[in-house]
Amino acid sequence: MYAFEFTRPKTVAEAVAALAGEDAQALGGGQTLIPTLKQRLASPGMLVSLAGIAAMRGVSVAGGTLTVGGGTTHAAVARGAAAAFPALAALAGRIGDPAVRNRGTIGGSLANNDPSACYPAAVLAAGASVVTDRREIAADDFFRGMFATALEAGEIITAVRFPVPQRAAYAKFVQPASRFALVGVFVAKSAAGVRVAVTGASEGGVFRWTQAEAALAADFRPEAVRGLRAAAAGMIGDLHGSPEYRAHLVGVMTARAVAAA
């Protein structure tokens, strides 16, 4: 790791001020960033740890909306969302391993937008909004492709607001070495319709499978998507699976998610 300065502010305002400095980088739980720093793939001048900001932690429910603080760990989401939004709790409880879940945060995961991360699928399928220190961003506007988001430099995710769906489930085909999703599909049915978000599959990061959404809006059963085929073009191909394999898994995991919802 290259050397850097380290600061641990207590408030969002202090963190925003610290991030305005040159070469400053926010640090959530560090479960992706610290390995990245070790590999010298990043060399910030200053790390601004968000772990000391108590106001950014916690899960609360009010009026059909579940709000998760940006600094809330996966383990805390798994516990705190279990009653109100079990599909989200189940997703959080299967990220990485227990020690990673005790450290990694929802805000860190979303800001990184790894194309195989689990949370982006839940946020996009539920039609959640990402709250930052300066604005609120709808899920449909937040994700901008692999490792890219609508966040500006120094912008901090302070919370995520999920409208709790009537029915929802996440089906994850685990890549067992990394424990990321080889393909993960989050299905959410609400009064507004059905949304299907797919992670792990596309070169463009998380995406909505609109063809399946239309079929499920008419008939919310696994059978409704059995005949559909996601296109292999633009899917990730690596040693774990070809684009065709992932495209096939998209259909399989969507049907499994619907069955579980």
């Binding site: 380290f6 560090g30 479960q31 390995p35 740890s49 000391g52 227990p98 005790n102 450290r103």
Partner: peptide, 14 residues
């Protein structure tokens, strides 16, 4: 809470 001590900065354990 169980954590991986190789993936936490000492200053974050203040």
């Amino acid at each position: 809470a169980a954590v991986k001590a190789c993936a936490v900065f000492a200053l974050d354990a203040e």
